[in-house]
Design a binder for these strands. Structure first.
Lengths: 335, 335
DNA sequence: ATGAAAGCGCTAACAT
DNA sequence: ATGTTAGCGCTTTCAT
């Protein structure tokens, strides 16, 4: 592989001049610059990124830790991140941590050793230990997809309000027995999405003067099968819901299937509303009414924010809460 | 950040000895090694990957070029790759190239400059120009998801046979007017998946002595909406199919919706079979019968192969054709 | 078993 | 406008 010295020799200049030419420094004559670039091209030379990283102490690389890239939700977020990085001349190292603490810390360590310029971290949980590890390592960090009480930048949506809106929509359609299928609450110690959404649901019911039935509150694992089981139990119970709010689209889809399998119809007998707005929503029958999260945007904005911080812009960077949106399709109807 | 010199000083040894300790070289006394490691730990030292890459001329990084990570299909493949890389101490740089030639070549260039140890390339097309670029750059390469006539290692399935099997299954159920929704054929110059599958479909019909109706051959873009439109046209035509083979699950799902929207039932009136076996298949109604591609395996095997080549094992590496599988669910019925 | 020193490919002072 | 040189943090001969 050709290196800077080869180019210098062939162009009859010093390696410093070659370096200048490639870094667009002002103090190289246009003529020599052109000659250098041409010679470089002819022998297929381009600067070595690792070598550059070493001297500049900057790798132009972002570390990206997500739970699971095979989940379409994260696929969208990551797509937003990668697109943005590409536009800003960064590359992305992808890490699947499965929401597992050890895997996360292991990856954080690896990324640190790789001198990544920053990390975008996406996980169901952000604990005190996370906070301390990141602080200790002093790596620029942006949390994606969730807010936090720590002084760490994040890009997310207002989960409480989003769930409030979803529930309220059901109420506005005349529903009174509204069930919820939420995710793991984890003792409600941490500010997990699931907790916020659950709280938003309860608040909406209370504000409308409606009763909160314990029988209509079920927990599942964010997946279709979990949603199916939870809905099935609800529908076979004493108090039957006329509407169900599932806090992820996959669970909502499971719930719709449960409605049919229980001998009811959706939306005629039971309305179902989801959360996320993944592509599937328009494809299934009935098309799913849901709360849209700007997944791509979450990724894109997080990446932009991180790149800015790395660039050292002291412009008082702030966390961002993006807007959610109610997308009305056909899975909910007036009571 | 602590470096190797700091550790050396504190441990009263030379940096060479520290290096040996961290590289598990045999010629360091257990005692000093332990001391060095302990001191390193106490000041939070770990070797710099960029510096190491420079001397060793090895980055322990793989470049990964895929069309679009937000597509669940590639999500699975990438998941297989990343898991495998993680197990072999490699990291992965993710690149979305959208099947665009320029973006692909740009990424290949970037990855080369980053001295990645190898590249896994996944794209709808692998042209002569691709072949030449890769040969020119001399980067270890494995093609994922598709075969090629060039002397390049690949990991894929036998698309021709898979399509043959799908069609044959329909035939075995008594169907005679079997439509196909295929992808872009691109003049059929290149060995694209779409072409192989289309050919497999025709061969199965011919082998069974069935007529190939031009009216039952439609092209779409691999997405649900495309499948919907294609199926709609077919169902409204003169010659109505009793079964449809869509060469991707997303198109199959679109087709199922089209069946219902046209006033027919699936599978009673029209059977539909898909291709890929994405998670969705079990979630929609009716659950989709399909040809399963081992997506995770494609990624995992490709990564394993690449890591082996990089390791210099001359063990006559061979391309791999993985098995596909017919997964019978409820979207097809006997005529 | 350990150290000294060269070198990986580049950038960034400091000269001229 | 261009060259010289000292690093960046590490591995790897070559000595001892």
């Amino acid at each position: 592989m050709a290196n800077i010295e080869d180019v210098a020799r062939l162009a009859n200049v010093s390696i410093a001049t070659v370096s200048r030419a490639f870094n667009n420094k002002p103090d190289v004559s246009e003529k020599t610059k052109a000659r250098i670039l041409e010679i470089a091209r002819s022998i297929g030379y381009e600067p070595s990124v690792p070598a550059r990283s070493l001297t500049k102490r900057k790798t132009n690389t972002l570390g990206l830790i997500v739970p699971d890239i095979s989940n379409p939700f994260y696929g969208e977020v990551v797509r937003g991140i990668e697109d943005t990085c590409h536009n800003h001349n960064y590359n992305v190292i992808l890490c699947n941590a499965d929401n597992k603490r050890d895997k996360e810390f292991l990856y954080i360590d690896m990324l640190k050793n790789r001198w990544v310029d920053g990390i975008i971290f996406h996980s169901d949980y952000f604990t005190e230990r996370h906070y301390e590890v990141f602080k200790g390592k002093k790596i620029p960090l942006v949390l994606a997809g969730r807010a936090t009480k720590y002084d760490i930048l994040y890009v997310a949506i207002d989960n409480f309000k989003a769930a409030y809106d979803a529930t309220n929509y059901l109420i506005s359609l005349g529903h009174e027995r509204i069930g919820i299928i939420h995710g793991p609450l984890n003792g409600m110690e941490e500010t997990v999405d699931s907790v916020d959404r659950f709280l938003g649901y309860k608040k909406a019911l209370k504000d409308a003067g409606l009763k909160v039935y314990d029988e209509l509150i079920k927990e599942a694992n964010f997946k279709a099968k979990g949603g199916y089981k939870a809905a099935k139990m609800m529908l076979e119970g004493e108090i039957k819901p006329t509407a169900i709010f599932a806090i992820s689209d996959m669970m909502a889809i499971g719930a719709i299937n449960a409605v049919f399998d229980s001998g009811f119809k959706c939306p005629e007998d039971v309305s179902v509303i989801g959360f996320d707005n993944i592509d599937l929503c328009e494809v299934i029958r009935p098309p799913l009414t849901t709360i849209a999260q700007p997944m791509y945007q979450i990724g894109a904005v997080a990446a932009k924010l991180l790149v800015k911080i790395i660039g050292g812009e002291q412009v008082e960077q702030k966390s961002v809460l993006l807007d959610h949106e109610l997308v009305v399709r056909k899975s909910c109807s007036r009571l």
